[in-house]
Design a protein around this nucleic acid. Sequence first.
DNA 1: GCGCGAGTTCAGCGGGGGCTCAGCCAACCC
DNA 2: GGGTTGGCTGAGCCCCCGCTGAACTCGCGC
Lengths: 225, 225
Amino acid sequence: MRLLVVEDDKHLASALKRGLEGEGYAVDVALDGIEGEWLAQENEYDAMVLDVMLPGLSGDELCTRRREAGDWTPILMLTARSGPRQESRALDSGADDFLAKPFSFMVLVARLRALTRRGRQERPSVLAAGDLRLDPASHRVWRGDTPVELTPRQFSMLEFLLRRAGEVVSKATILSHVWDFSFDGDPNIVEVYVRQLRQRIDHPFGRASLQTVRLVGYRLDPDGG
Amino acid sequence: MRLLVVEDDKHLASALKRGLEGEGYAVDVALDGIEGEWLAQENEYDAMVLDVMLPGLSGDELCTRRREAGDWTPILMLTARSGPRQESRALDSGADDFLAKPFSFMVLVARLRALTRRGRQERPSVLAAGDLRLDPASHRVWRGDTPVELTPRQFSMLEFLLRRAGEVVSKATILSHVWDFSFDGDPNIVEVYVRQLRQRIDHPFGRASLQTVRLVGYRLDPDGG
DNA sequence: GCGCGAGTTCAGCGGGGGCTCAGCCAACCC
DNA sequence: GGGTTGGCTGAGCCCCCGCTGAACTCGCGC
């Protein structure tokens, strides 16, 4: 069982490391969000413990970004004080559990054990909106029972839209998440791919799941159109 | 299947490496305990073979420390002489099995096979995708009733793909699991082996079980094509 | 030594996916 | 209705990725 602890308070961080190692975990520690994200990208952990307040990249953001990257490692968030605001934000961003500081070490261990036992199986293996389904692992898409062929870029864009089904997503957001950060080409590319997606997941089936919200962006109907 | 061998006798170490690679394992070698611990920390092996007597850090100590770090990779310990003292120390330190020098290579392979089989919870003895079957123990492959001849590396790659049937696996993932860490050659090698596999398990049977997912990787059809 | 087979490297190719662009159309405002 | 703005469309170019065949190395057995 390998854990990642992201905590900027050095004292707490080393205490957690020693304590959790005593419980039989292998523990990696990062002192800020940037380093944490790097480690999370490069390694496969059985669970992560994130502080909400972090320099560089907050726990919330880090959590969101891991989920967007398709990483469903169990995440336990440490919130500064038991404020319902922080707690709900933590869960919204995709955390599996949270713990308010100050906390008892035994409670932390118990929660972690629950998380790692629950483990990996119940990650949403398939994203869906109505009868539109996408499986990130096998890289395949269906409308109902009909398989749909998509190019990698089309797939990546649909995956992103599905993770935000029901929300309106701006073209800029799509650009920055689906295209490389350094992309500085014609933003029209988003429209081009919207069209390609519609031609593959909507038109042949007489649907309209991918809606235009003029001047704002696009919205994927969570019911599939 | 990836192994770590920690053995300070260079002659024996390289013999083990070659022999085990001939059995289809990817093998990393460390010549002392320190290097061994480093590699064990940084990588996830399917089993480790440790010599008891090692410069730097003895096999016993290394074993103990891996267990303390929460690493329960199956460990086979090589003891210098069949002394009950060494054997019991080996098992006490958390090893799963031991073998007294001098030993027969066939016995080593058999014990390793038992360990890696036991390791993950009761994996099926025969891997299959549709009518494509692979038996890790006897090292044989069939398409339907027709036996298929594969070289060790081809076999190892097919075994890995079968264990992840249905998923898309990237070339980098394949490289790191089927080749050992010191390999830094042309990644094109994966494409070459994909082609060889297709020529043996697909083309003669008019199948297409090994699919290319452009820019992402390869996927073995869990139904065999 | 010689031949063989496995593993690896390499260069060329062919196609398809990514992206651009210019023109068209629909919506909104006056 | 006319103008303006933003989104849609279809064609086309280009380059990257994956495929392929052949050559080379190395170890091993005869």
